[in-house]
Nucleic acid binder design. Sequence first.
DNA 1: CTGAAAGCGCTTACAG
DNA 2: CTGAAAGCGCTTACAG
Lengths: 353, 353
Amino acid sequence: MSGNRAGRGRIRQSDIARLAGVSQTTVSLVLNGAAESAAIAESTRERVLAAAEELSYVADPAALSLASGRNRLLGVHTFMATFPLGMSNNYYPYLAGVEEETAAQGYDLLLFTGSAAEPGAGPVELPRLRMADGALLIGRRFALKGVESLLDSGFPLVYVGRHDELGPRLPYVGADYVTATATLVHRLHTLGHRRFVYVRELDDAVASDDRQHGFATGAEALGLAADDAVVVRTDGSDITPETVTAWLEDGRTAVIAEGGTDDLAAARAVQNAAATAGVRFPDDLSLALTGEQVGHECGAPVLTGYSVPRQEMGRQAVRLLIDLVTGAPVPAARRQRLLSCSPLEGVTSGPPR
Amino acid sequence: MSGNRAGRGRIRQSDIARLAGVSQTTVSLVLNGAAESAAIAESTRERVLAAAEELSYVADPAALSLASGRNRLLGVHTFMATFPLGMSNNYYPYLAGVEEETAAQGYDLLLFTGSAAEPGAGPVELPRLRMADGALLIGRRFALKGVESLLDSGFPLVYVGRHDELGPRLPYVGADYVTATATLVHRLHTLGHRRFVYVRELDDAVASDDRQHGFATGAEALGLAADDAVVVRTDGSDITPETVTAWLEDGRTAVIAEGGTDDLAAARAVQNAAATAGVRFPDDLSLALTGEQVGHECGAPVLTGYSVPRQEMGRQAVRLLIDLVTGAPVPAARRQRLLSCSPLEGVTSGPPR
DNA sequence: CTGAAAGCGCTTACAG
DNA sequence: CTGAAAGCGCTTACAG
């Protein structure tokens, strides 16, 4: 049979029409409310409304969506096999913000999960986003090709993060890691530190590049020599107790570790090596983070760093997306924006005397 | 204009048909896969598939749903204004399980959030669930009327929790709080406690009733007199230091507080009152929970209780829902089931000597 | 093996 | 002020 809805006992506009003795068109007109129904006789209006009430009519959302072209659904995709609903996950605050604002705007959320059927599925999954009126993209990196073709077809997309590789075509709401990191260097400098080490993980993503770039920018602004602001890129295995000792002997009293990664491997490697070497925080060595400790353990000291306004990024991304979906005018400057991060004071102190 | 989808560059089956040089019907037949497409020439099939791939076609869920009643979307509704993505929230593990299994089955999730447009929206929002093939209901309580009319129309629904008010009509996957709580009483009895107090919050929900019922059942099984297993129902304000002292003077050495609520107000009230009274845990008084401490603070002692298999409940609810959606045969016994909770050993000890 | 046609429940010009 | 009709993008008998 075509359409199993009738069999499901659903009430249609035609049922109301029959009961009220009008046409289905009139029912639709009345039920759509305000503007149009001005042109409908009050008595007719009331009859239809009464009939609708009596049958406890409710519009079929699918039909409604098909006819009007909108479904008030916002897709979310994170380019991962399973959706990062994981508790101690960095993505979590984004989602909370997204969800909050989506609800506030009267939309609902479509979570695209990357079906298990397709293991390395990034690009394969993307087209399914079209089910929604528009979609949010979240994640450290993404499938460029799939995103491009979505954009090409005019599908409204907003990326949560900075991404300029596609020029002005991809709207986004990102965090200003460059400024935040430069400021962090400055803060440490104010505390008295003069030589810095930046420890970055192997993974590269725009957010990582931005952080490192901010480190360089900050050092430059302070007039530091290249050797006073070195960058170590590592998977952690080559940060040995000797490494840390050598830093200190070199007068490098402040280490900045990459934040925003899932496990903060860089910071952890430094902490472990320091512990073995008998180097104490923050008396001997200061450790700061280009971000905050998300799933931070009981009793562990809070590291100096900055907080990324993830929830707010989520909210703003939703607002931007809805503007794009509804065709509201969005000036170019508002299509790509960076939010600033706020300083987080932790256990970092001045250098040992 | 009617239907703005074309303008949005959405690819339709007719686009594929044109590219592949076949009819739209054939495209539909091919895209629907297995059974039917046996009757389609392999070469045609391939041509259509290639064209679909090239255009990165994706079915319009609304059209699909309208025509066939299926779209591989599972709705989730929690009867709250905003979706409980909140960090320390009890609902979180359910969602994690739901998401995981949904992904594994190749479905996607529709999060129904309760639009802010309708404040007291429970029943008003429910019909929107029909956008999905079926839906999961999560929450301590729910809008009975809305749920009933959804059920009446044959819409597949699974409640995460026990709910027998609708008889066998509402399928569910719940937790066996009755047995878990009875066992908890037994465990405390084994430690030497002989007189118990059960502290329950004012809110009532099936999950709360079940816990209290389990307390009664457990006490009865141990042959305790009514006065040895009293129930206090409170918003916390009348649990004073004197209350706690009186319990102890009465020989009531074990307090069981209601778990599973958002803030564990009952347990907190007991803890605060005890602290003021100078009563120590667990030396003077043992405190157990009918559940576990979800967003449990650093340094706070872990309370004895039991863990609710929330994630597994989520997974099983999804599997059940998909069976209902696809029309797989589901024996009555499998339509309503309770999972058991596992004991959690905390700081509770025997009674003071 | 393939296509023309009806239908799912709605919206929206267009006529009257 | 109201209704007949076309169309949204699909599925599914039914003919050929």
